[in-house]
C-alpha cells in the first residue's frame, strides 16, 4: 500500500467513528439546528415584512443566506470536536499509533460534511414550510447544495486549526462566534449587499460568503427578474469565486492543521 491510500483508509476509520457519534448523540444535531430554524422563522415572520428586496419575496431571498450561515457555523463543530478529543487525551492516543498524520483531521472534516448535509436537509424542510421554493432545475439545486457543502468543508479546515490550538471546545465556540457573526452578517446573507453602508459594502461584495450565497440563490432560482445587475466581480462570477476561495483555504489550512496535529498535546 502506498501512503495516500493508507491515509485515506485511516481517515475513513476516523470518519466512521464520527458518524457513529452523530447517530449516538443526535441531541448535538438537534441543538445545533434549533438556532437556524429559529432564524428561518424569526427572519421570515419578524423581518419578512419590513425588509424589502427589490421585486422579490424576502423569505425566499433569505433561505440561501441562512443555509450559508448555518454550514459556516457547522464548521465550528469540527474545531470543537478536535479540541474535545485533545482534552480527553484521544489525540495523544492517535498520535502514538502508526497511523497517517493527516488522517485524524481529514477524517473529521470529511465526516462533518455529512453533519452539514443533514442540517441543510432539515433546514430545507423548514424553509419549504415558510414558503421557500426551488424554482430552478434539479441539477442547479444540486449544484447549489454542493457549493454550500464544499465551501463549508474548506472552512472546517480553518476551524480544525483553531480546535488544535485552544485548550477546550468552549473556546472554539466562543472564538467562532466572534469571527463568524461579522463574517456572515457583513455579507448578502440577510440583506442585499448594495444596501450596506460605506466600507461595509465592498467588504460584503468581496466576502466569499456573499459569493456562496449569491451562487446558491441563483441556482435555486430565488433571484427575481427585477433584481439589479451585480456590479462587483465576485458576485458576477459567484461560482468561480467560491471555488477559488475553497481551493485557497484548503491548500493553506490543510497543511497547517496537519502540522498542528503533529505537535498537539494535552495541556
Amino acid at each position: 500500500m502506498n501512503s495516500p491510500v493508507i491515509a485515506l483508509a485511516d481517515a475513513a476509520v476516523i470518519a466512521k467513528r464520527n458518524v457513529i457519534k452523530i447517530k449516538r448523540v443526535p441531541d448535538v444535531l438537534v441543538f445545533v439546528l434549533i438556532s437556524p430554524i429559529m432564524f428561518v422563522l424569526l427572519f421570515a415572520y419578524v423581518f419578512g415584512s419590513s425588509i424589502e428586496v427589490p421585486g422579490g419575496n424576502y423569505r425566499e431571498f433569505l433561505i440561501a443566506g441562512i443555509f450559508a450561515q448555518t454550514v459556516m457555523f457547522g464548521a465550528t463543530f469540527t474545531g470543537a470536536s478536535l479540541a474535545e478529543d485533545m482534552q480527553k487525551g484521544l489525540i495523544d492516543r492517535f498520535r502514538s499509533l502508526p497511523m497517517s498524520r493527516s488522517a485524524v483531521v481529514a477524517g473529521r472534516t470529511a465526516s462533518d460534511v455529512i453533519y452539514n448535509a443533514i442540517s441543510i436537509a432539515i433546514m430545507s424542510l423548514a424553509g419549504l414550510l415558510v414558503g421557500w421554493r426551488i424554482r430552478g432545475s434539479v441539477t442547479d439545486a444540486v449544484i447549489a447544495f454542493a457549493l454550500l457543502l464544499i465551501f463549508a468543508y474548506a472552512f472546517s479546515w480553518v476551524m480544525a486549526c483553531v480546535g488544535l490550538l485552544v485548550p477546550t471546545p468552549e473556546v472554539v465556540n466562543n472564538a467562532s462566534f466572534v469571527v463568524l457573526f461579522p463574517l456572515t452578517f457583513v455579507a448578502n446573507t440577510f440583506v442585499p449587499s448594495e444596501d450596506l453602508p460605506g466600507p461595509l459594502r465592498p467588504f460584503a461584495e468581496w466576502n466569499p460568503i456573499s459569493a456562496v450565497v449569491q451562487a446558491s440563490r441563483e441556482r435555486f432560482g430565488n433571484i427575481p427578474p427585477e433584481w439589479p445587475e451585480q456590479t462587483a466581480w465576485p458576485l458576477q462570477n459567484p461560482v468561480l469565486y467560491t471555488l477559488i476561495w475553497t481551493v485557497i483555504v484548503i491548500v493553506v489550512f490543510a497543511p497547517i492543521a496537519t502540522r498542528l496535529y503533529e505537535r498537539a498535546s494535552r495541556r
Binding site: 457513529i20 457519534k21 449516538r24 487525551g89 495523544d92
Partner: peptide, 8 residues
C-alpha cells in the same frame, strides 16, 4: 487518563 471514546 483513559483515552477511549465515550460515545463508542
Amino acid at each position: 487518563y483513559a483515552a477511549v471514546d465515550e460515545h463508542l
